[in-house]
């Protein structure tokens, strides 16, 4: 296989090579899982994963079925993301319009920017705000 510099290849070849890559990946995964070299509880085979997925659609795990867990995660995600963009866009617009606001807010951001969002979690956990609002708080951080 020659590695020509950025020469475009035919669409059919792209699809073919992509299929080969995916098959090789799945084959390797299945092979390792089926060989028994790694315990099943450490590495399930792809088909076991699919079966488990189908099972979780209707049967509950950790109290809820998979769609219920997804709905709950999506709800939190939506709240945090929605709050962040609602405030962020408004603040950004105003910072662009009023220079003094930019001058005031930017240093605060520069100070907060390097705190990894996750590092806010302990504060959220010791009960800064109630229930789901805590999670919203950390998702909207910087």
């Amino acid at each position: 296989m020659r590695l020509d510099p950025r020469l475009p290849i035919a669409r059919s070849e792209t699809v073919m090579l992509g299929g080969v890559g995916l098959l090789a990946f799945l084959g390797l995964w299945s092979g390792i899982a089926a060989s028994g070299y790694v315990p099943r509880s450490f590495l399930p085979a792809p088909w076991e994963m699919i079966a488990r997925f189908a099972h979780l659609l209707t049967n509950s795990f950790a109290g809820f079925t998979l769609p219920q867990h997804l709905a709950s995660s999506l709800g939190r995600y939506g709240m945090g993301f929605g709050l962040a963009i609602a405030i962020g866009i408004l603040l950004g617009l105003m910072m662009g319009w009023f220079r003094w606001l930019d001058d005031v807010v930017t240093p605060i951001f520069d100070a907060l920017r390097f705190i990894a969002p996750i590092a806010w979690v302990p504060f959220a956990m010791i009960g800064w705000w109630a229930s789901d609002l805590r999670i919203v708080r950390h998702e909207s951080g910087d």
Binding site: P5, R6, L7, P8, I9, L17, G18, V20, G21, F25
Partner: peptide, 15 residues
């Protein structure tokens, strides 16, 4: 490699 060779890109990108 992926940027350089379209073949390598086609092979690796899906994974």
């Amino acid at each position: 490699l992926m940027g350089w060779s379209s073949r390598a890109e086609a092979l690796i990108n899906p994974i």
